[in-house]
Design a protein around this nucleic acid. Structure first.
Ligand SMILES: [Mg+2]
Ligand SMILES: [Mg+2]
Length: 1194
DNA sequence: ATGGTAGGCAAATAGC
DNA sequence: GCTATTTGCCTAC
C-alpha cells in the first residue's frame, strides 16, 4: 500500500474513502495471491497472416458478357396467364391460432415456364465453393440468448417485465434446487466402484447395407478398408479413397521429412478447382507412402481395422467414480439384442414417403450446387432413430417486381375483380386484362434475366401487401409481378429499376430462408418426404446413415399431425488439451476427450438420474506423444489395461497430432452425434481442431467428419475478433448438420455469475471441484504414466462437466421450444441470435398473410458497402504497424476467462424509458412496489402499434399513434403469444391440481414452453429498435418507448395528485410508493386501490403489486437496496434485494463487496443508529487491522 | 452481423 | 496541477 494517501481524511466523504481503501487492499491481496481476475484477453489462436481475396473474376465476367450478347437474340415465349402462387393454407393449428382469414389460392394457377434455348453449354464457373461460403454463413455470437438475467430464487409468478427476461431466472432457480438435490443424492450414494458399461448406439460401426440406398458401405467406412499401396498410376478412379486411407493412418513424422518438397495442398484457396486439389493430394499421398514404406502402412491399417471391429464402450476408470456409481453394465446379450434392432432400411409409409425430424439445415452458396439445401435430422427405423440427410435440389428464387403506378393499376384491377364477382366479365377475360396490365413489367424483367443468361424462368402477377420502410414501394395491397427462377442463376441486382417497375423485393432471400418460410417449417419438427431418390454409395455427400435427394422442395411437407414422438438425440461433449507452440504461438493438440450421451430428450428437461446412466454413456480419449519424445514408461501398458478392463478401446495412444486428429474424427463419425457440446467449444476447441487439421494436412474426408457434410475444401478460418462471440462462420459451416452447444455462452446468458469459467461453474452449480491444467503445465504431465493418466482424466472430466452443465441448464429443451415458436434454425437459437428468432417469427407471420417482407440489408446496402471499403482501407494501412498486436494470444484455453471484449457501442438513437428522480433516503415504513406487466409488449397491443398501422413520415418526424381500427400484425402476434402462454399456464395449474397424479416432468415441460413464449414476446420490441434488424423500425420503437414514458408519468401524477400518495422512485415501468404505514394489511389496501385506479385506464396494460418493502435505502437512480417481504407456503419472511450497488457489480473487489454488504445489512437491520454505526465502525477497524498485517509482510 | 435505452462511477484524456 | 469531457464497464429496466 505504498501509494496510499496519508490518513488525514477523517473529514473526507466516507463512502469513496472506504471503497478506495478496500480496493487498494484488494489489489494488494490480489498481488499476494496471484490475482483473482485474469487481465488477459480471451483465448485466441494465431494461425496465419491475413489472406486477401484475389479471386480473378475478370475472365469469368468477360465470358458472361459475351454470352449475354448471344442470348439477347433469342425470343422469349410469353403466354403466362396464371396469377397467384403456390397456395398453402395457413397451418397455425399447432400454435392454435389463426392470424387472418387468408385468401384461398390454388396450385393450379402456377405461373408458366418460359424457356430460352441455349446455344452452347454454359461456361462453368470454377468451383470456388466452400471457402467463400463461410463468409455468408450465419453468425455465432451468443451475446445473449435470453438477456442477462438474475439468478434469483422464488419470485412471484405474476412478476413480469418488459425488457428483462427474468422468467429464465425463475426457471433456473427451480432447476438449481432440483438438480442440487439430485446432485446431493448422487454424491451421498456414490461409491468408488465403477462398473463396465456398454454403449448402446454403436450403430455407425456396422456397415449399413442399406438396400434403399444401394450402398454396401459408407464412404466413412471406406477408410477402414484395407489399403492397397498406391501405384504410380494415379488416374485410378478409386484413388481418392486410397490416398485418404493412407493419409489417415500415416505418421506425421514420415511427412515432415518430405514436407519441404512435397506439393502442398492449398486447402483454403478457393481458386483451385477440385480436380487440381485431388491431383495434388494424390501426389502427396504417393510420396508419403513411398517414404513411409509399405510395411508401416499395412501394420497401422490392420490396427485400425481391428479396433473398428471392437466395440467401443464405456468402462470403469478413474474420474468417473461419482458418476458411474452403482450402475451395472449392459451384458452381452442385451447388447446383441440392441444391435439386432438396428434397421438398415427406412420405414416407408404406404404412399412411399417417409417421416423425417429436421434438426439442422445448410445451404450451399457457391459453385455448381448453389442453392442446394442439405437438411439434417432423424428418421425412425424400427425402434431406433438414425441420422439422415436430405438434399433438396432445384430451389427457385422468388422475387417480386413492384410496378410503377401501381396505385392506378390496382384500382383498375380491383374494379375488374368486382366485375368478375358480379359476373360482368369472365374469369378468362379478367386474367387476360391482368396479363396485359403487367406485360410491360414482364417484358422488361425478361430482358434483364436474359441478359443475366437466365434461360428458364417464370413470371406472374400476384396480389401482395407491403408495409415496411421502403418509400418507393406503396403500402397496402397491390398487384406485383412474381418472378421465379433457379438459385443457380445469378440474382437480379437489388437496386434494379425500370420504366415499368420501381423496385425489386426478395433478391436477398436465401434458398434456405425461402424453403423454411414457404414450407412453413417452424423449428425442429416432423416432415414428410415424398418422391425421393436414394443417393448412390459413390456419390454420398454426407456422413449420415441415410441420404436421399428430392428434386423439389414441394416434396417436403410439414407432417400433418403429430406423427410420432419427438426423437431423442445423441450429444457428444468434447474437450481438448493443448500445448503451446512457443515459436508460432499456437495451440497444438495433445489429447482429445469425448463423452457421448445417447437418447437425450429434447422435449423435456432430464433429471441427472435419467441421463447419467452407464448404458447411455460412451467415452473416449485419444492422446498423442509429444514431438521428439516417447510416451512415459508404463503408459502403453496402462492403456492396454484400461482398454482390456473396459472391454473396448476407450483410450488410444497415437504417435502424432495428425494421427490423433484422424482417430478423433473416426470416433466422432462413429458416434454420429447430433449435438456437440463443450465449454467455450465455439471459441476454442473447434477452432483449434480445424486449424490443426489444416496445419497437419488431415484429409478433407477426415476433418469434415466433425460435421455431417463431406467437404473437400476447408473454408477460410478467420481469427474471431471478439472473445465470447461464438465460432466464426467458417467454423460453423464445417460442422453443418450438427448443432453446437457452447456451455460457456449458454451459462453466460442463463446464469448470473461472477465468472463463467468451467471451474467456477462446476463449483457453484454442480458442486464439484475441477482441476485446472494450463497449457504450459501439460508437457510436464507427459513425464510419468501416472501424471499422463491424470491429464487424460482431467480432459474427460471437463467434457463431462460441460455435458452436465448442458443438462443442468436444460439448454436443449429450452432452445428447441424457442425455435418452435419462431420457426428459425435451432442452431441459430443455440448461438443466441435473438434478432433472428424475432425475424423468423415475423417472416412466417407476414408471409402467411401475403406480405412481401423486407430484404436483408436493403436500406443500408449502400451505406454498408461504403463503410466496409473504408474499414478495409483503414485496416490495411494499420496492419503493418500493428503487426505485433497478435502476440500474446495463444496463452488461453477454454477456461473462459472474463475478457469480454465488447464491441464499440453506438450511442442511443432514440429515447428510452423514464427514470424518476429518486427521493433519496433510508425509509423504515412500508413501501409499495408496483410494476406494469410486460410494459412494451402491452403497449404494442394497447395502442395497436404495427408496421401496418403506424404512419411513418419520410422526414424522421415523431410518429403519431395509429388511428386504424383493424388490428395490426404485431399486436396480433403478441396477443397470440400471450394467449398461448395463458393456456400453457392453465395447463400447468391443471396438472398441479391432479392431486398425487401430478406429473412433474410434464409440469417442467410446460413451464419451459411458457417461458419461451414470454421470452419471445419480450424480445420483439428490442428488435424493432435494432438497427441491423430486418424489421428495423425506429419510429415504432420510438413510439413504444414514448408511450411508456407517458404511461409512467401519468401513473405518477394519478397516484400523487388524485390518491395523495408519495411516489419516491420509479424506473421505466415501476413506481415505488411510500405508504408511511407499519401495517401490512393497511399497505395492501392502498395497493389494491392504486391498482384498481390505474388499471381501469387501460385495455391491455396491467399494473400489479410486485411486493412490499419493509425498509429501503434509496441512494441514486438505479441504486438501492430494500428488505422485501416474501411468502413461502403462506408464511412470510424477509430478504434483502440489492440493485445496482457496488456490491452487486463484478468490477468491484470481493473484499469491498463483502464489507459493503455487511454495512448494508446493518443499515437495513432496523437497529438503532448508534448500534449500526458502532457495528460498521468495528468491522472497518477489523479490516484495517488485516490490511496493516499484510503490510508488515512487505 | 447476431434485440433496446438510462444511468452511475472510475479511469483516461483533453485543455488550460 | 486542475477541471471538464469522454470512454469503458456494468448494471436496471
Ligand atoms: Mg414490469
Ligand atoms: Mg419493473
Amino acid at each position: 500500500m505504498a501509494d496510499d494517501e496519508p490518513v488525514s481524511g477523517r473529514r473526507r466523504p466516507r463512502g469513496p474513502e472506504a471503497t478506495e481503501r478496500s480496493k487498494a487492499l484488494e489489489r494488494l491481496k490480489a498481488r499476494i495471491h496471484g490475482g483473482r481476475r485474469s487481465d488477459a484477453t480471451g483465448p485466441q489462436i494465431r494461425l496465419e497472416n491475413p489472406v486477401y481475396d484475389t479471386v480473378p473474376e475478370d475472365e469469368y465476367n468477360a465470358l458472361v458478357a459475351k454470352r449475354r450478347e448471344q442470348a439477347r437474340s433469342f425470343i422469349v415465349d410469353d403466354e403466362g396467364l396464371g396469377y397467384g402462387d403456390e397456395g398453402e393454407e395457413e397451418d397455425w393449428s399447432q400454435a392454435g391460432f389463426n392470424l387472418s382469414s387468408g385468401e384461398s389460392e390454388d396450385e393450379s394457377e402456377r405461373p408458366k415456364r418460359k424457356k430460352v434455348e441455349k446455344k452452347d453449354p454454359q461456361p462453368k464457373r470454377p468451383s470456388s465453393s466452400l471457402s467463400a461460403a463461410a463468409a455468408m454463413m450465419g453468425g455465432q455470437r451468443l451475446s445473449s440468448m435470453f438477456t442477462s438475467s438474475v439468478f434469483k430464487k422464488s419470485r412471484d409468478d405474476k412478476a413480469s417485465e418488459s425488457i428483462v427476461d427474468d422468467v429464465i431466472a425463475e426457471f433456473a432457480a427451480d432447476e438449481t434446487d432440483r438438480l442440487r438435490r439430485k446432485r446431493a443424492n448422487v454424491n451421498s450414494s456414490s461409491s468408488s466402484v465403477t462398473n463396465d458399461a456398454l454403449r448402446i448406439n454403436n450403430t455407425v460401426r456396422d456397415k449399413p447395407s442399406v438396400d434403399l440406398i444401394g450402398a454396401s458401405s459408407l464412404p466413412a467406412n471406406g477408410n477402414a478398408e484395407s489399403v492397397k499401396v498406391v501405384d504410380s498410376d494415379g488416374s485410378d478412379s478409386g484413388f481418392e479413397q486410397k490416398s485418404e486411407a493412407v493419409s489417415e493412418i500415416e505418421d506425421l513424422a514420415c511427412v515432415s521429412s518430405e514436407n519441404g518438397q512435397a506439393p502442398v495442398v492449398e486447402s483454403d484457396d478457393c481458386k483451385i478447382n477440385e480436380g487440381i486439389v485431388e491431383a495434388k493430394e494424390m501426389k502427396k499421398a504417393e510420396i508419403e507412402v513411398k517414404s513411409g514404406g509399405k510395411k508401416e502402412v499395412f501394420t497401422l491399417n490392420a490396427k485400425v481395422k481391428e479396433e473398428d471391429e471392437e466395440d467401443p464402450s464405456l468402462s470403469a476408470t478413474a474420474g468417473w467414480k461419482e458418476v458411474m456409481s452403482g450402475a451395472g453394465g449392459v451384458d452381452a446379450d442385451s447388447k446383441d439384442a440392441l444391435q439386432n434392432q438396428q434397421h438398415s432400411e427406412l420405414d416407408l409409409e404406404k404412399d412411399g414417403s417417409f417421416f423425417f425430424y429436421i434438426l439442422d439445415a445448410y445451404e450451399e452458396f457457391y459453385g455448381e450446387n448453389r442453392g442446394t439445401l442439405y437438411l439434417f435430422g432423424k428418421v425412425k427405423t424400427g425402434d431406433l432413430y438414425q441420422s439422415c440427410c436430405i438434399i433438396v435440389k432445384n430451389m427457385q428464387r422468388c422475387i417480386y417486381a413492384v410496378p410503377s403506378l401501381s396505385l392506378h393499376r390496382t384500382e383498375e384491377m380491383m374494379s375488374l375483380e368486382r366485375d368478375v364477382q358480379e359476373s360482368r366479365i369472365s374469369s378468362a377475360d379478367f386474367f387476360k386484362k391482368l396479363q396485359d396490365a403487367v406485360s410491360d413489367v414482364k417484358n422488361e424483367i425478361a430482358q434483364h434475366l436474359v441478359n443475366l443468361e437466365v434461360s428458364n424462368f417464370s413470371m406472374a402477377p400476384v396480389k401482395r401487401k407491403y408495409a415496411f420502410e421502403r418509400s418507393e414501394i406503396p403500402a397496402g395491397e397491390n398487384y406485383v409481378v412474381k418472378i421465379n427462377y433457379s438459385f443457380k442463376d445469378p440474382v437480379l441486382p437489388v437496386d434494379l429499376k425500370g420504366e415499368s417497375f420501381c423496385a425489386l423485393l426478395g433478391t436477398g432471400c436465401s434458398a434456405l430462408e425461402l424453403f423454411l418460410i414457404k414450407r412453413k417449417i417452424k423449428g425442429p419438427s416432423w416432415l414428410q418426404v415424398s418422391n425421393f431418390s436414394p443417393s448412390s454409395a459413390s456419390r454420398r455427400v454426407s456422413w449420415c446413415k441415410f441420404e436421399v435427394t428430392v428434386d423439389s422442395p414441394k416434396q417436403i411437407n410439414s407432417a400433418p399431425k403429430i406423427t410420432s414422438k419427438i426423437p431423442p438425440v445423441v450429444v457428444a461433449a468434447i474437450n481438448l488439451k493443448t500445448i503451446i507452440n512457443e515459436k508460432q504461438n499456437i495451440n497444438e493438440i495433445v489429447s482429445a476427450s469425448v463423452v457421448c450421451c445417447n437418447m437425450v430428450k429434447i422435449d423435456t428437461p432430464m433429471m441427472a438420474s435419467e441421463w447419467r446412466r452407464p448404458e447411455r454413456l460412451t467415452r473416449f480419449t485419444v492422446v498423442r506423444k509429444l514431438d521428439g519424445s516417447i510416451f512415459p514408461m508404463g503408459f502403453n501398458k496402462e492403456v492396454t489395461d484400461r482398454n482390456l478392463q473396459a472391454g473396448s478401446n476407450i483410450l488410444c495412444a497415437e504417435s502424432s497430432e495428425r494421427a490423433l486428429l484422424n482417430r478423433l474424427m473416426l470416433e466422432l463419425h462413429k458416434l454420429d452425434s447430433d449435438v456437440l457440446v463443450g465449454h467455450n467449444i465455439s471459441g476454442f476447441d473447434l477452432d483449434v481442431l480445424l486449424h490443426r487439421s489444416q496445419a497437419c494436412k488431415v484429409a478433407s474426408s477426415m476433418w469434415s467428419k466433425l460435421g455431417r457434410l463431406n467437404r473437400s475444401t476447408m473454408p477460410k478460418l478467420r481469427r474471431s475478433k471478439v472473445f465470447g462471440s461464438g465460432a466464426d462462420p467458417g467454423i460453423m459451416s464445417c460442422i453443418a448438420g450438427r448443432l453446437l452447444c457452447d456451455t460457456y455462452l449458454c451459462s453466460r446468458d442463463l446464469l448470473k455469475e461472477v465468472s463463467y469459467s468451467l471451474t467456477h461453474l462446476a463449483k457453484s452449480h454442480l458442486n464439484k471441484i475441477r482441476t485446472e491444467v494450463a497449457p504450459h503445465e501439460v508437457p510436464k504431465m507427459f513425464q510419468t504414466a501416472e501424471s499422463l493418466m491424470k491429464l487424460i482424466e482431467y480432459g474427460e472430466t471437463d467434457a463431462w462437466l460441460s455435458m452436465e452443465l448442458m443438462f443442468y441448464l436444460s439448454v436443449l429443451p429450452l432452445t428447441r421450444q424457442l425455435t418452435n415458436i419462431s420457426g428459425n434454425l435451432w442452431g441459430k437459437t443455440l448461438q443466441g441470435a435473438r434478432a433472428q428468432r424475432v425475424e423468423y417469427l415475423l417472416l412466417h407471420t407476414f408471409h402467411a398473410m401475403k406480405f412481401m417482407v423486407p430484404d436483408k440489408f436493403s436500406y443500408h446496402a449502400k451505406e454498408t458497402k461504403e463503410t466496409k471499403l473504408m474499414k478495409r482501407r483503414l485496416t490495411h494501412d494499420v496492419e503493418d504497424n500493428n503487426f505485433d498486436a497478435y502476440i500474446d494470444d495463444a496463452n488461453h484455453d477454454n477456461d473462459a476467462s472474463e475478457a469480454d471484449n465488447k464491441k464499440s457501442k453506438k450511442g442511443p438513437s432514440y429515447a428510452g424509458g423514464l427514470v424518476l428522480e429518486p427521493k433519496k433516503g433510508l425509509y423504515d415504513k412500508y413501501i409499495l412496489l408496483l410494476d406494469f406487466n410486460s410494459l412494451y409488449p402491452s403497449i404494442i397491443q394497447e395502442y395497436n402499434i404495427c408496421f401496418t398501422t403506424v404512419e411513418r413520415s419520410l422526414d424522421e418526424s415523431f410518429p403519431r399513434l395509429p388511428s386504424s381500427k383493424t388490428t395490426g400484425v404485431l399486436p396480433e402476434v403478441l396477443k397470440n403469444l400471450v394467449d398461448r402462454r395463458k393456456m400453457v399456464k392453465s395447463w400447468i395449474k391443471n396438472e398441479k391440481n391432479k392431486n398425487e397424479k401430478t406429473d412433474p416432468i410434464r409440469v417442467q415441460q410446460l413451464d419451459i414452453q411458457q417461458q419461451a413464449l414470454k421470452l419471445t414476446a419480450n424480445s420483439m420490441y428490442g428488435c424493432l429498435g435494432f438497427s441491423n434488424s430486418r424489421f428495423y423500425a425506429k419510429p415504432l420503437a420510438e413510439l413504444i418507448t414514448s408511450q411508456g414514458r407517458e404511461i409512467l408519468q401519468s401513473t405518477v401524477d394519478l397516484v400523487q395528485n388524485n390518491l395523495n400518495l408519495e411516489v419516491i422512485y420509479g424506473d421505466t415501468d415501476s413506481i415505488m410508493i411510500y405508504s408511511g404505514l407499519d401495517e401490512i394489511e393497511e399497505a395492501n389496501k392502498i395497493a389494491v386501490r392504486v391498482i384498481q385506479e390505474v388499471n381501469k385506464k387501460y385495455k391491455c396494460l396491467e399494473i400489479d403489486l410486485d411486493g412490499l418493502y419493509k425498509r429501503m435505502l434509496l441512494l441514486k437512480k438505479k441504486k438501492y437496496a430494500a428488505v422485501k417481504l416474501l411468502y413461502k407456503d403462506g408464511t412470510p419472511y424477509e430478504a434483502i434485494e440489492r440493485k445496482g450497488l457496488d456490491i452487486v457489480r463484478r468490477d468491484w473487489s470481493i473484499l469491498a463487496k463483502e464489507l459493503g454488504d455487511f454495512c448494508l445489512t446493518q443499515i437495513l437491520s432496523g437497529g438503532s443508529c448508534e448500534d449500526v454505526v458502532e457495528s460498521i465502525h468495528n468491522s472497518l477497524m477489523k479490516v484495517n487491522c488485516i490490511v496493516l498485517q499484510y503490510q508488515t509482510f512487505f
